[in-house]
């Protein structure tokens, strides 16, 4: 089991997603990790038993394009990231606007700084 990590910048995300879609990959998962004051996004794709992982580090206030138009189920993961980490994602196919998870506090996994 090997994790093929590819580090990309946030502007190349859609292009890479399109390429993987054309190569018949399926979306495995999207996850966010807090790294200091930044957020590390992992977009994992699979084809049969292959595994590719796109890594992309963004600031908490950065906006990122949604890949839900390329991979339809991505909107679930993106809404999840938005609700738990407060990442702003543009052009989601279905945007719950923060009501996907019913959390007691906003962005519980990455609380916004005061002020």
């Amino acid at each position: 089991m090997d994790n093929n990590n590819i580090v990309i910048s946030k502007n190349d995300l859609l292009e890479n997603a399109n390429r993987l879609h054309d190569e018949k990959y399926r979306l495995v998962q999207i996850c966010a990790t807090r790294v200091g004051e930044n957020v590390l996004l992992d977009y994992s794709f699979g084809r049969d038993y292959e595994f590719v992982n796109l890594k992309c580090e963004i600031g908490q206030n950065d906006e990122i394009m949604s890949i839900s138009r390329v991979f339809p189920p991505a909107f679930l993961y993106e809404n999840e990231m938005h609700d738990l980490y407060g990442i702003k994602i543009l052009h989601m196919t279905t945007d719950y606007e923060g009501s996907f998870y019913r959390t007691a506090v906003k962005n519980p996994f990455f609380p916004l700084k005061e002020g």
Binding site: V28, Q29, C31, T33, R34, V35, D42, S44, P72, P73, L76, Y77
Partner: peptide, 29 residues
């Protein structure tokens, strides 16, 4: 179905991030 587990450690006994993508989440679509 397939479940994926992401673990990220930083050298301390507490992990930095643990993430589960469960099969149901993938099958919701």
């Amino acid at each position: 179905g397939e479940a994926s587990y992401y673990v990220r450690g930083n050298g301390t006994k507490f992990l930095e991030r643990f993430r589960v993508r469960t099969p149901t989440f993938a099958n919701l679509g």
